[in-house]
Design a protein around this nucleic acid. Structure first.
Length: 819
DNA sequence: AGCACGCCGACT
DNA sequence: GTCGGCGTGCTC
């Protein structure tokens, strides 16, 4: 075989670089960069890869294999994406394969262990199938489900993937997936006076006469008329009417007589409230000014930071900008923090731009992801809305990327490689595609703010709330004082309690914020002080009252709550600290009549839990909502005038250089949930450190002074934005080997860094997770050093470390720009 | 990341 | 006597 052409293929492996396969002459006809291919790898495996490049440099060190099959006629990945992936793998110090695996929908990656399922057993046009397809089809009729691997035994290895692909295209089989969850929209019964009677006095009197012998029905009908007048056209739920004295039986009779109409109404989260129109509402003077400034700044800056107080109407500005970008024939990517993607904002945008809007979110199943990928590739969408992973879609012609709530730490991917920050990658992608990037936040991150005031980004402020509503009045409740004066029940001070009473009296809904889920963080034995810990991780177990269990929030370990102390046998086990679950119980005890609900990861399991909660809240089926951080993201309701923070202390005492920044942002964002539509809202923050500077700054909305302090400290202690950080996280099940390895790498790196720029190795606050010990080494890159050179150096030193086999088994995760 | 190969302990 | 633990090395 004398082939002269070769292809570099990207494979979903955690190995550096691409892999070379040789091409046959006939391959050259169809191969295209960005196309999917099936290639053999190792002794057994078949992988789906993507063509990276084509060349004629024959590798000398190893023998190349041939490509088994081309899976597409046209590329599924654009050249820009490949460039983007390469950038990411270089910047975040992971393999190209890591990026590929994370970026590419797994449904498009047919692999040996993938299963396919027969979906059209009735398929009868047998003669349209080739021999291989027929064989697999027959096998599936017997078995229903087979793996790609098994298919390879039925046909031959090389033909398995192409055959399955053809069958998928014909709609005969599909990739096996658990039945996709179905969301059943909430349907409520509503009642109204029958339309025929409206404005028809004669008919109405006739009905009333008819009801003379049925006083109950007559009474109910008259009551309904009164209620309808009061409600001014708002629909009335049967359930609500029954609460006010009507009965279902009576209503049923009335409906049969044609006096009232009972109708179903899908309480939709899609169709918003009456004030929403399909036109983008006229911008206020301030908004218009901001819009003009943004456009001016974009002339010579590629990134602009829009700093607008909560509820200042940033969304309207986004909408206008989107409209203008689209008018020029470009596309818009709108990034949001994870949870917000499902909320009202999406519906608002859809209202204006209809089906030209694509929504991506992480709870989508694989088929939905593939569909979105393909539609994006076709250019079907003008706007894509999604969380950080939406950056991976195959865009073309992107004109603008909006990163809303830019300060949100959920933009940083922490669980799988690459550990990228969506805000930073948005700017990179923007650069590759010549798109402008708009960062929006009410509380910009220190990094972005610093770049803005130093003219690296444009900076536009919007410091007036929409409709000129005043910012909520924020007050601190001193818990020390409250405890001394016994003005507190459990964790709810009487000031807070009284405020909630007032709000409920006014039929307002209340949001309470507690930064911790679970019932109580830890259990402690009163006799010996023992605290139950996770057997796999170095953390105390969290008590969950609902399930009466102790849980580890890190590895998921669960055990029943012990009756006696496992250490001394005492029965006096007590709980220490507070979580959302406990607050829920306390609040319910104080307000037995109120409808109390909880919003945290435990309560938000399931695909539509969040939507359901929003619906219930909107329909006033919740009086008091207790939530973690989640409630700060895109939770925008008119009927909330008051927000309470149960305990700010845990936020202030985080052992992290970002603690103050995060605390300020979170408290400001939480406060922003109050009084968004009409009147000025109120906020009460309970804390044992009432005098704390950050709390004081929150009450006065002193963003700039807070940032000044924070930036001063960052500069003093060499933290971003004055340095760039790289964290090396070592993991191993043997602590000694772990420590030795980490020490050794530090020794190798020492010569290249000042001592205050090379920290560790140090055990993080949780020193063991899932039976792996952890050690961190932090590197600070000063502005006079080239980050690229530092990264090369780290890579080289790790390679050097790995020449000694004892060090090789210690896993090293590199986190660039950790948060 | 997978996977094969190879070398040591506890089981039919 | 084997099964299977995971340490080590290789994959275009």
């Amino acid at each position: 075989m004398n082939t002269t052409y070769f292809a570099e293929i990207i494979l979903p492996l955690s190995l550096d670089g691409t892999f070379t396969y040789h091409l046959y002459e006939e391959d050259l006809q169809q191969i295209k960069v960005g196309q999917r291919v099936a290639v053999p790898f190792g002794t057994q495996k078949l992988y789906t890869g993507v063509v990276h490049s084509i060349h004629q440099n024959k590798p000398e060190l190893y023998k190349t294999k041939a490509i088994h099959a081309f899976l597409d006629n046209e590329p599924l990945v654009t050249q820009t994406q490949i460039k983007f992936w390469e950038w990411m793998s270089n910047y975040y110090m992971c393999s190209l394969g890591d990026v590929f695996r994370n970026a590419f929908p797994s449904a498009l990656k047919l692999e040996s262990q993938t299963f396919v399922r027969l979906i059209n057993a009735e398929f009868s046009a047998i003669d349209e199938l080739n021999d291989y397809e027929f064989l697999v089809f027959e096998a599936l009729k017997l078995r229903q489900i087979i793996s790609v691997e098994e298919a390879a035994l039925i046909v031959d290895e090389k033909s398995a993937i192409p055959t399955l692909k053809l069958l998928i295209d014909k709609g005969i089989i599909c990739l096996d997936e658990k039945l996709s969850e179905k969301y059943t929209p909430k349907i409520d019964n509503y009642v109204k006076i029958h339309p025929d009677l409206k404005g028809n006095d004669q008919a109405f009197i006739a009905i009333l006469d008819q009801l003379n012998k049925a006083p109950k029905q007559r009474e109910t009908l008259l009551q309904l008329i009164t209620l309808e007048t009061q409600l001014q056209g708002k629909p009335l739920k049967v359930a609500d009417f029954v609460k006010q004295g009507a009965t279902n039986a009576v209503l049923k009779s009335l409906a049969e007589k044609g006096a009232v109409e009972i109708y179903q109404f899908q309480t939709s989260r899609v169709e918003g409230k009456e004030e929403e129109t399909s036109e983008i509402s006229q911008l206020t003077l301030k908004q218009n000014e901001a819009l003009t400034q943004i456009k001016t700044q974009f002339v010579d800056k590629s990134t602009v930071l829009l700093h607008g107080v909560t509820s200042s109407g940033k969304t309207e500005i986004y909408l206008k900008l989107m409209e203008q970008v689209i008018a020029k024939g470009n596309k818009v990517l709108y990034l949001l923090p994870e949870i917000s993607v499902t909320t009202q904002i999406v519906h608002r945008i859809k209202k204006h731009f209809g089906d030209k809007v694509g929504v991506y979110h992480s709870k989508f199943n694989q088929n939905e992801r593939v569909e979105l990928w393909q539609k994006t590739l076709n250019g079907d969408f003008d706007i894509i809305i999604g969380p950080r992973t939406a950056l991976y879609l195959p865009f073309d012609n992107l004109g603008m990327i909006i990163v809303d709530e830019e300060h949100e730490s959920s933009y940083k991917q922490m669980d799988v490689k690459p550990f990228f920050h969506a805000r930073d990658m948005a700017m990179l992608l923007g650069g590759l595609m010549n798109a402008k990037v708009l960062l929006g936040s009410a509380t910009p991150s220190a990094e972005s703010y610093y770049n803005a005031i130093n003219q690296k980004y444009g900076y536009v402020e919007l410091n007036e709330r929409f409709g000129n509503i005043k910012l909520p009045e924020i007050k601190i409740v001193d818990l020390k004082k409250a405890q001394k004066e016994k003005e507190i029940t459990d964790d709810i001070s009487h000031i807070l309690r009284d405020e909630i009473v007032e709000q409920l009296k006014d039929k307002k809904q209340v949001i309470l914020f507690q930064n911790r889920r679970g019932y109580a963080p830890i259990m402690e034995c009163n006799t010996c002080g023992h605290t139950p810990e996770c057997p796999n991780c170095d953390v105390s177990l969290t008590y969950h009252k609902f399930s009466n269990q102790l849980k580890c929030h890190y590895c998921g370990y669960v055990q029943a709550k012990p009756i006696r102390c496992p250490s001394c046998g005492s029965h006096e086990l007590n709980t220490k600290g507070i979580g959302t679950e406990q607050i829920e119980h306390q609040v319910q005890a104080i307000f037995p009549e109120a409808k109390v609900r909880r919003m945290d990861v435990d309560a938000m399991r399931g695909k539509f839990a969040y939507e359901k909660l929003i619906e219930d809240f909107e329909n006033h089926e919740i009086d008091i909502l207790i939530g973690t951080q989640m409630i700060t993201k895109g939770f925008d309701f008119g009927n909330v005038n008051f927000v309470g923070v149960i305990r700010a202390d845990s936020l202030l005492n985080f052992p992290d250089f970002r603690a103050h920044e995060k605390a300020f942002q979170l408290l400001t964002q939480v406060s922003g949930r109050a009084g968004r539509r009409q009147e000025q809202g109120k906020v009460l923050i309970q804390s044992f450190q009432a005098e704390h500077q950050i709390l004081q700054n929150v009450t006065t909305y002193s963003y700039a002074p807070t940032m000044k302090d924070i930036l001063y400290e960052r500069k003093e202690f060499l933290y971003p934005p004055f340095t760039r950080l790289i964290n090396l996280r070592f993991k191993h099940k043997n602590k000694e080997r772990l420590d030795k390895t980490a020490e050794q790498l530090v020794t190798l790196l020492k010569a290249s860094f000042e001592s205050r720029c090379l920290l560790g190795p140090e055990a993080p606050s949780i020193g063991r997770i899932n039976n792996l010990y952890i050690a961190d080494v932090m590197i600070k890159i000063r502005p006079n050093q080239s980050p690229q050179k530092v990264k090369d150096l780290i890579r080289q030193k790790i390679e050097q470390l790995h020449t000694i086999s004892a060090f090789r088994s210690v896993r090293i995760d590199i986190d660039v720009d950790p948060v």
